[in-house]
Design a protein around this nucleic acid. Structure first.
Length: 478
RNA sequence: UCUCUAGUAGCUCAGUCGGUUAGAGCGGCGGACUGUUAAUCCGUAGGUCGUAGGUUCAAGUCCUACCUGGAGAGCCA
């Protein structure tokens, strides 16, 4: 008999059918004559209830049916006598595929702390919460490719190892095969990277954008979706040393086109989650609600599914940096001196300012545009005012900056001048500048932090819990 | 990196002003129970109190350093 996945059994299994199900024991409840096993195979958040007549099975076998053990069960589907499920499997045969010693198996049928499960990241997939999160993560990765494919974008594989460090997005991880203890030295005592694997210093990528622009100015629209590395000593709930980023780059798109794309893209993904991951979302929503019970009324956040629908059904607020500064300066928060950091035109907005705009003032996702040029990267489009650049940041409640992007400066001279001002090694970037020398056009792009987006969709609180194996300062387990 | 905070049983935690033999629930194990829903009930085992120093007649409790976790900030996606 062929194994049928539990998702399928629960959806279209009929009473009377003989089936085989395989999975892992979530809980076992017993009495003198009958056992109930909650069996889960990862295909769905929901368990299959297996009913075992104790008298038909060896005691030794029944003893091995513990939380975490893997079973193959064949039997007949019946309408459930108990409430809580429509259908259940009455076991004719139970085969123990893999035992799990109950004295040693760490995952118990009880609530565990996120910290404990993080330390047991190799087993946390077996919990309801994490199986839901990682099914949703998969669905979102798939939907990203689906969206761009439908829009005619090309998936461009930009390099993981790069010799360029001009993007300035953060500290980089050095990639080398040199002996760390005895590296070859040049005459003046510096490490001689000409003898390294690539013949020059190389690092893990912090962004595929610059290479992405090369693709966009030939293929029209491209996107990247791959791992990105930042060696920043950041210890927060929204930073990882290794994370996944989606970076679309589009020829002939100006800043408004760029914003339109970002908004449509995010809404497409949210819609996909609501249409395809409802079971998991409902589980996570319920979990969140229980967590929120302890909080005072005014600190509780919106129900997860309500929140997703809200973002889906409302236009993002678009305003310029200058307008945002005005709002902040006229806010009751500012007047009561509740902001810790100063608010002045020219400063970079602090978390508290972004949160005020998104969570208190607009209560809606916000797209901020046209930042002062001095706080943004060299490649951004210089506006006619001489003070600002065509940047855009999408800010989400709780998470903050989820997307950072801009229209790119397409004018060679302006770009070169700005690079010199910011001490970017122009000579090493010749390959990049060729895009502006030959057939340069208006173009734009942005970067979406995949894990930050997953945080938003799942309602999870810590970015380490939405990536299978988190890489953070002092932690590279598994 | 900075600020705050925590580390006690497998897990989640309590442990009062420094005082005698270290506490609970869950989980495990043994048993009971005719259909359970993280079942219930009875019993039982389980501890180098993060590590190293120090103060004290006496330290889980106070002090210092370090390690690790968490929250927030900075940096950013």
């Amino acid at each position: 008999m062929k194994r049928i996945k539990i998702k399928e059994l629960l959806k279209s299994g009929k009473a009377g059918e003989s089936v085989v199900a395989k999975g892992w024991v979530r809980t076992k409840r017993g009495s003198k004559n009958v056992f109930f096993i909650a069996l889960n195979d990862g295909s769905t958040i929901n368990n299959l209830q297996v009913v075992v007549d104790v008298n038909n099975f060896e005691d030794a076998l029944l003893r091995e049916i513990n939380t975490g053990a893997a079973l193959s069960v064949s039997g007949k589907l019946v309408e459930s006598a108990g409430s809580g499920q429509n259908i259940e499997l009455v076991a004719d045969q139970v085969e123990l595929l893999g035992a799990a010693d109950p004295e040693k198996y760490p995952i118990q049928p009880k609530k565990h702390s996120m910290e404990f499960l993080r330390e047991n990241a190799h087993l946390r997939f077996r919990t309801n919460t994490f199986s839901a999160v990682f099914r949703i993560r998969h669905a979102m990765a798939f939907a990203i490719h689906k969206y761009f494919n439908e829009k005619g974008f090309n998936y461009l594989h930009t390099p993981i190892i790069t010799a360029s460090d001009a993007e300035g997005a953060g500290q980089m991880f050095r990639v080398t095969t040199l002996d760390a203890k005895n590296p070859p030295l040049t005459e003046d005592g510096a490490v001689d990277f000409s003898q390294d694997f690539f013949g020059k210093p190389t690092n893990l990528t912090v962004s595929g954008q610059l290479e992405g622009e090369l693709g966009a100015l030939a293929l029209g629209e491209i996107y990247t979706f791959g791992p990105t590395f930042r060696a920043e000593n950041s210890n927060t709930t929204r930073h990882l040393a290794e994370f996944w980023m989606i970076e679309p780059e589009m020829a002939f798109y100006d800043l408004k086109d760029n914003m339109d794309l970002a908004e449509e893209f995010l809404k497409y993904l949210i819609k996909y989650a609501l249409e395809n991951c409802m079971d998991d979302l409902q589980f996570l929503a319920k979990r969140l609600q229980e967590e929120e019970k302890d909080k005072p009324q005014d600190q509780r956040s919106m129900d997860l599914i309500e929140k997703l629908n809200f973002v889906l059904n409302n236009d993002f607020i678009r305003l310029t940096y200058t307008e945002a500064i005005d709002i902040l300066k006229n806010s009751p928060y500012y007047k009561k001196k509740k902001f810790q950091f100063p608010v002045e035109w020219g400063i970079d907005l602090q978390s508290e300012h972004e949160r005020y705009l998104v969570e208190k003032h607009f209560k809606c996702p916000v797209i901020l545009t046209n930042y002062p040029k001095d706080i943004k990267a060299f490649y951004m489009k210089q506006n006619d005012d001489g003070k600002t650049v065509g940047a855009m940041d999408v800010l989400f409640p709780q998470i903050g900056e989820i997307i950072g992007g801009s229209q790119r400066e397409e004018n060679l001279e302006k770009l070169e001048t700005r690079m010199r001002e910011m001490h970017i090694p122009v000579e090493e970037m010749d390959w990049y500048l060729d895009t502006r020398r030959f057939g340069s056009v208006v173009h734009s792009g942005f970067g979406l932090g995949f894990e930050r987006f997953i945080l938003f969709v799942t309602g999870m609180g810590n970015i380490r819990d939405v990536i299978p194996f988190a890489r953070t300062p002092k932690n590279a387990e598994f």
